[in-house]
């Protein structure tokens, strides 16, 4: 059974009097243990797709089954529970609470699972050790480097032992060396059996994923090994091959 199963999923926004069709019938299956990249230019519908898969948003039509359960028509609170139990998020801008320590940030999803303080602390500590931040637990985000912040965010995503790790441009705000460090961490997580979905506009990143899908105008236009999809993407848009400005 596939972990993610999208059937003809559409998402239409109402912007003023216009309706914007961000997704136009997306079909996608992702199995447990896969590492999938979603590539596409900005405006291609990547973020919308990620929001739908991450249960932050619901499809306008079509069906979405996560872990065998249809989640297309759940209430906000039910979706909140699914996010809490099934999905670990890693965002481009980290999305850490600035006033809280690294440990408290990692504990946060467990707070909403209703765990006691002691168990939360132990699990958060273990997750931070896993991302090699055992010595930074008491630091606040502004006392950490970008790479360390993203590792805190990854620890927070892993602490609930989710079925799916969703990363949205996780290296977008990092320099290339730090970005590489984060990608290595993802590779390791993949080897450990986690299911990873990586949204990115960088073909080089997609090329390192075993599988990638390419989105354009709200539709999947290619689906295959990461390297092939990335190359195809480069051929269509040579600008992406230019070295990073940094």
């Amino acid at each position: 059974m596939a972990l993610i199963e999208l059937e003809a999923v559409t998402r239409t926004y109402q912007v003023g009097t216009e309706s914007v069709r961000a997704l136009r019938g997306v079909c996608l299956k992702v199995s447990r243990g896969e590492w999938l990249a979603v590539v596409g230019q900005s405006g291609s519908g990547k973020s919308t797709l990620m929001n739908v898969i991450g249960c932050l948003d619901t499809a306008s039509s079509g069906r979405y089954r996560l872990n065998g359960h249809d989640v297309s028509h759940l209430s906000d609170d039910e979706l909140a529970d699914i996010r809490n139990r099934e999905i670990g998020f890693v965002f481009q801008t980290f999305q850490l609470l600035p006033r809280e320590t690294a440990l408290a940030n990692v504990e946060l999803p467990l707070v909403y699972r209703g765990l006691g303080a002691r168990e939360r602390r132990e699990r958060a500590r273990a997750a931070l050790e896993k991302v090699k931040l055992a010595d930074r637990m008491a630091h606040r985000p502004n006392e950490l480097s970008g790479g360390q912040r993203q590792r805190v965010a990854i620890a927070r995503a892993l602490v609930t032992e989710p079925s799916l790790l969703l990363a949205d441009e996780p290296t977008g705000n990092l320099d290339s060396a730090t970005g590489e460090e984060i990608i290595r961490l993802f590779e390791e997580l993949h080897r450990m059996g986690h299911t990873l979905l990586l949204v990115t506009h960088e073909p080089r990143l997609a090329a390192r994923c075993p599988r990638a899908v390419r989105l354009s105008d709200g539709e999947i236009i290619s689906d295959g090994p990461g390297r092939e999809v990335a190359l195809q993407n480069l051929r269509d848009d040579p600008r992406l091959a230019a070295p990073e400005p940094r």
């Binding site: 991450g54 996010r83 998020f89 999305q95 609470l97 909403y112 927070r156």
Partner: peptide, 15 residues
């Protein structure tokens, strides 16, 4: 933003 993060990580409305 904090509220958004909390909700994304599974905080229900009531919470």
């Amino acid at each position: 933003r904090e509220i958004g993060i909390r909700k994304a990580l599974g905080a229900r409305k009531r919470r």
